[in-house]
Computed example of a mutant assay.
Amino acid sequence: MAKKKTAIDFEQSLQTLEQLVESMESGDMTLEKSLEAFEQGIKLTKECQQALKEAEQKVEVLLNQNGEETLAPFKEEDAG
C-alpha cells in the first residue's frame, strides 16, 4: 500500500508544483506571496527528486533480483 501512497504523493506534489509555477509566471503575486510560493516549490522539488530516486533504486533492486543486471543508459530517442 505504501507504493500507491508514494505514487499519489509524487503526482500531487508535481501537480502542486506546476500550479505554483503558473501562478508565479502570471506576475500577479506580491513579493511576499512569490517568496512563499518559491519556498514551497523548493520543498516540493526536493520531495519529487527523492521519490524518483527511491523509484530508481527499487527498479534496480528488482532487476538485480533476477540475477542479471540489465540496466542501460536512457536515450531520448528511445522514449518517442
Rank of each mutant, 00 (worst) to 15 (best):
Lys53Leu: 14
Glu32Met: 11
Gln19Ala: 02
Leu62Asp: 13
Glu69Ala: 05
Ser23His: 05
Gln57Trp: 04
Ser23Asn: 08
Glu60Ala: 13
Glu77Ala: 11
Lys58Ser: 08
Ser34Val: 03
Glu54Leu: 14
Glu47Phe: 07
Leu31Phe: 13
Phe38Gln: 13
Ala72Pro: 01
Glu77Arg: 09
Cys48Trp: 03
Lys5Gln: 12
Gly67Arg: 00
Ala2His: 01
Val59Ile: 15
Gly41Val: 05
Cys48Arg: 04
Glu47Lys: 14
Gly27Ser: 07
Glu36His: 10
Ile8Ala: 08
Leu71Asn: 05
Leu63Ser: 00
Glu18His: 06
Gly27Cys: 06
Lys33Glu: 15
Phe74Cys: 12
Glu36Ile: 11
Thr70Val: 10
Asn66Leu: 07
Gln40Leu: 11
Gln19Met: 02
Lys75His: 12
Glu56Gln: 09
Gln57Tyr: 04
Leu31Ala: 11
Met1Asn: 00
Leu31Cys: 06
Gln49His: 09
Asp78Ala: 04
Glu47Cys: 05
Phe74Gly: 01
Glu68Asn: 12
Ala7His: 03
Glu54Ser: 12
Pro73Phe: 09
Glu54Ala: 13
Glu39Asp: 13
Gln12Trp: 01
Met29Pro: 01
Thr30Leu: 11
Glu60Arg: 14
Lys43Val: 11
Ile8Thr: 07
Ile42Cys: 07
Ala51Glu: 02
Glu60Ser: 12
Asn64Glu: 14
Asp9Gln: 07
Lys33Leu: 14
Leu62Arg: 08
Leu52Pro: 01
Val61Glu: 09
Glu69His: 10
Gln57Ala: 14
Ala2Tyr: 04
Asp28Val: 04
Gly67Asp: 03
Leu35Phe: 12
Ile8His: 01
Ser13Met: 02
Glu54Ile: 08
Glu11Gly: 02
Ala55Trp: 01
Glu18Phe: 08
Ala51Cys: 06
Lys4Val: 06
Cys48Asp: 00
Ser26Phe: 05
Glu60Pro: 01
Leu17His: 10
Glu36Pro: 01
Lys43Cys: 04
Lys5Gly: 01
Asp78Met: 03
Ala37Trp: 01
Asn66Met: 06
Glu69Met: 03
Asp9Ser: 05
Leu63Trp: 03
Glu22Gly: 05
Lys33Asn: 11
Ser26His: 12
Lys3Met: 04
Thr16Ser: 08
Lys53Phe: 10
Glu76Pro: 00
Glu22Tyr: 07
Glu36Cys: 07
Lys5Arg: 11
Ile8Met: 04
Lys53Gln: 14
Gly67Leu: 00
Asp9Arg: 04
Gly27Val: 11
Val21Cys: 00
Glu25Lys: 14
Lys4Cys: 00
Glu11Ser: 09
Leu63Lys: 09
Leu52Thr: 00
Glu76Arg: 14
Lys5Leu: 11
Gln57Val: 05
Phe74Trp: 15
Glu22Arg: 10
Asn66Trp: 02
Leu62Met: 10
Phe74Ala: 15
Glu47Val: 14
Gly41Thr: 06
Glu76Tyr: 10
Ser26Tyr: 06
Lys43Ala: 13
Phe74Met: 15
Gln50His: 08
Asn64Ser: 12
Met24Val: 11
Glu22Thr: 08
Leu71Arg: 15
Lys3Thr: 08
Glu25Phe: 09
Gln49Ala: 14
Thr70Arg: 15
Glu32His: 10
Asp28Tyr: 09
